[in-house]
């Protein structure tokens, strides 16, 4: 299973290195949302600064769907996903590989967007370790559910349009926990242990569940 996951992960990285589709789309979109927030709300007040983590994750949740949608769109493009599904490998391994690639793309997007976020919202990072953990666990959470639903949505007539509709409601706990932990890292909230625990539980639950059900998503009619 891990061998398969590694092959799939490397393949997705290679494609991303060559095209930079997922990361650039997600990055540009998240910056756009941050800029739009700035116009829609006056963010440079102390009040708003305390809510900065929320803005960041909202921008990121929407931008992330672009990267996640791309994940299975590229499998559908020339039918390569069919060949992948027919290979004598474990569906769970394919899922883990795609999920790891997506989590990495999301994490990289966040790291690149972070300086802009700090500048736009005039926030200061109080606890760098907590921020890294928040970003990493949050990325895994979004990737865990997003990868599964990207594959589900790719099978419909609506393709990517259905992805946010399916996946955003399910990611509510991850979103809340990510906002709270990032808020803690920025010095705007206390008591993060519950939220870190929730993120870890969420990651474990959805990684496990997805590995188990992924074979049903991959099979053809």
């Amino acid at each position: 299973m891990l061998q398969t996951a590694r092959a799939v992960l490397e393949k997705d990285f290679r494609i991303e290195l060559r095209t930079r589709d997922a990361i650039s789309a997600a990055l540009v979109f998240s910056i756009l949302v941050l800029v739009v927030f700035n116009f829609a709300l006056d963010v440079n007040t102390p009040e708003m600064r305390r809510l900065a983590a929320g803005f960041f994750w909202v921008a990121f949740a929407f931008a992330g769907t672009l990267a996640l949608d791309r994940s299975f769109a590229l499998e559908k493009e020339s039918g390569a996903g069919r060949a992948l599904a027919l290979a004598p490998v474990d569906a769970g391994g394919i899922y883990l590989g795609k999920c790891a690639a997506n989590a990495a793309f999301l994490f990289i997007t966040q790291l690149v967007a972070l300086p802009l976020f700090v500048i736009f919202f005039d926030v200061s990072i109080q606890r760098a370790g907590a921020l890294a953990a928040s970003f990493a666990l949050g990325s895994i959470a979004f990737a865990a559910v997003g990868t599964l639903f990207s594959a589900v949505a790719a099978n419909t007539r609506m393709r990517g349009l259905l992805l946010p509709i399916l996946f955003l409601p399910l990611s509510v706990p991850a979103l809340i926990a990510s906002v709270e932990t990032t808020s803690f890292a920025l010095g705007n909230a206390e008591g993060p242990s519950f939220w870190f625990t929730l993120l870890v539980v969420y990651d474990v639950v959805f990684l496990t569940a997805s590995v188990l059900v992924f074979e049903y998503v991959l099979e053809e009619s």
Binding site: K11, R14, I15, R18, T19, L74, E77, S78, G79, A80, R82, A83, L86, A87, P88
Partner: peptide
């Protein structure tokens, strides 16, 4: 059975960006 079968379909089943 999967291991012993090779398939050529209407689609190329290739990754266009590799």
């Amino acid at each position: 059975a999967r291991r012993t079968t090779g398939l050529v379909l209407h689609e190329t089943c290739l990754y266009d960006d590799l």
